[in-house]
Amino acid sequence: MKEREAATSVPMLANYFRSGVPDPATPLSEVEFVALDLETTGLEPRQSGIVSVGLVPFTLRRIRVAGAGYWVVRPRRTLDEASVLIHRITHEGLAAAPRFSAVLPELLQALAGRVVVVHYRHIERPFLDQACRRWFGEGIEFPLIDTMALEGWMLRRGRTRLQRLADRLGWRRRASLRLGTCRERYHLPAYGAHHAMTDALATAELFQAQVAWHLSPDWRLEQLWL
């Protein structure tokens, strides 16, 4: 992070890198997290655009709705019909929205110094990286915790060797790792899916539940982040 701060010529990124990330040995109970969710027009960062961003800061003790952020942005490419349906954001709704570059400063500030928590790591990090490359000419990287990966690991861990063998041989259908299904396991309420703000909140709650059930607040950050 220090090297990146020195190396970058973009002040906004320099700020972000200056806040750094917590020491890998920090126990989870002392970490400031931020749950992040992006809704996009597709899965491929180079070809798809960001439609909306939701985030909410939290610790293991509290999720702070007052600090939450939500932005609808205008993607470079037009929306295809499928993602209109999924996100319920229409072309008209987007016409008035700002470009992603306009919200990036606020977004980076909200992420600074915090550990990002997402559900499914292959969206948020590559899309943010791609967006920064496009606007600043250089990307960003950051460590994150993936509740989906965590859930998969916990489910496997809970299984006997015989069950694991059966899993490998494909005798048994894998348990679903979708956000809503994972939440059900912890008796968390059902929310409407595919809204960046709601999904970020849902992810924060899921992570609290996962730690309450399977880990402990004493675990070190480095044991979880990817």
């Binding site: 509290r62 999720i63 709705v65 909140l201 924060a204 709650e205 609290q208 539940a209 309450a212 059930w213």
Partner: peptide, 14 residues
């Protein structure tokens, strides 16, 4: 009120 809420999850028995 809704915007000022803080949230926490408690496992059964805690």
């Amino acid at each position: 009120v809704s915007g000022s809420v803080e949230i926490a999850y408690f496992r059964a028995g805690s």
